[in-house]
Design a protein around this nucleic acid. Structure first.
Lengths: 227, 227
DNA sequence: CAACAAGTGGAACGGCCTTCCCGTTTCTAT
DNA sequence: ATAGAAACGGGAAGGCCGTTCCACTTGTTG
């Protein structure tokens, strides 16, 4: 079919079949690299991983941000979904805690996603819109959870942002050596958000010192922090 | 004087006067850059900032770690001092909270120091020894604070490490736009550590959304996370 | 004050990254 | 089937980083 696919797809005119295939290969490669290494990987290495020339990558995604936006467009769906599910929970406080855990788990599962949420550079409207949408739902969730008396009155929406930043720090530091450490942080933060009588999931154990030490004496890269 | 200065100084033979001066200039420059940019800055830029040739820098500090160790050797004193002061506090719980705040404040005041504590690569024995020493004092502080009934029984020493990682994440993300955000995190973590009846300092306010947004849409570098 | 060792900065090199250009290949529409 | 457009990949140019080498300068010591 020659007519432009879905309106407002991404480019004006549809891509040729082989070009579209390469586009997918690039996205798959970037997804892989970002997930394990974080955003920070060079464009050249993405092209290498995808098995295409650097020029092809540039042609498809002019800037690093373009690529990141394309890669995480669908991941953002999961983010929005989590909000919807939390709002659907009959118990607002339970929905709240599950939401926090779900989002932080998404960060842990994909280092690039952790970077995107905390981000460190201007996002495209596509991502931004969905984030804003999710944020609105979260605001609603907060007010509901407060009315149950389980969420402290001084909790504000910005606390989620702070938590995401903190969680990204833990994930970046522990890497693959103590990958469950973030759960300890989240468990404690939930304690801090909860009123004294709120039900809480059990606090996850801290990783054994040896694992943490290994995580602390590891070579990293500027990345995360670095881009 | 020709005889070697203090035994086990750092090099075998004393440096010539001008060389020593350059060494200081390099250290001062690195201190400046690390504090604001984090460890991640290139060796070349340190040399540039110091006004010396790259060769001179290499001669004085063969590796990046050598330089970092030298820069933060004295900063580590402050770390050890904080432990001693906390132990000297007649109220162990008060000492505990002040210790946490002091260490996190040190991270906030010096981005490089935040990176060093969380670190991301092998430290020299000099730093490592002082950190271990401080850690021992912290263990003592924990048991004391638990006996007062103000520190939860399930708090473990590794929780400090987790907090330092989380705090580093917040500091890296908020940068200079919302530089007080870390206080909110620390305030909430203290809540999580405390038993219900423990006295707590008031929870610092979250930064206004505009500042946080600005912090979230900023260009960073690899760094930090990045090295 | 001389002479030697210690120290210096610039130049050159290799590695990695990005951007731009251009000759070649491959799709697609007729 | 074929011509023209679309897409390709490799290579050149330029930038930054870190390392090493070398001829020159400057302390230091007797």
């Amino acid at each position: 079919m020659t007519p432009p696919e879905a309106p407002g797809q991404q480019s004006e005119t549809a891509l040729r079949a082989d070009a579209e295939r390469n586009r997918e290969r690039i996205l798959a490669a970037a997804r892989r690299l970002y997930a394990t290494e974080g955003l920070g990987v060079s464009m050249a290495s993405v092209a290498r991983e995808a098995g295409v020339g650097k020029a092809t990558l540039s042609r498809r995604f002019a800037t690093r941000e373009d690529l990141i936006n394309a890669v995480f467009a669908d991941r953002m769906d999961g983010y929005a979904t989590a909000t919807a599910e939390a709002l659907a929970d009959p118990d607002p406080w339970h929905g709240f805690t599950r939401y926090i855990e779900a989002v932080c788990a998404m960060q842990a599962a994909d280092r690039g996603f952790a970077d995107v949420l905390v981000m460190t550079f201007p996002t495209a409207e596509a991502l931004e819109a969905r984030r804003a949408e999710s944020y609105q739902g979260f605001l609603e969730l907060i007010t509901r959870a407060k009315t149950t008396g389980h969420l402290r009155a001084d909790f504000v929406a910005e606390d989620l942002v702070v938590l995401l930043m903190a969680n990204a720090g833990v994930i970046a530091a522990t890497g693959h050596d103590a990958p469950e450490t973030w759960r300890r942080l989240v468990g404690q933060m939930l304690r801090a958000y909860a009123t004294p009588d709120a039900p809480l999931p059990p606090l996850p154990e801290a990783p054994p010192p040896t694992d943490l030490d290994r995580a602390m004496t590891r070579f990293g890269r500027p990345a995360t922090n670095e881009l």
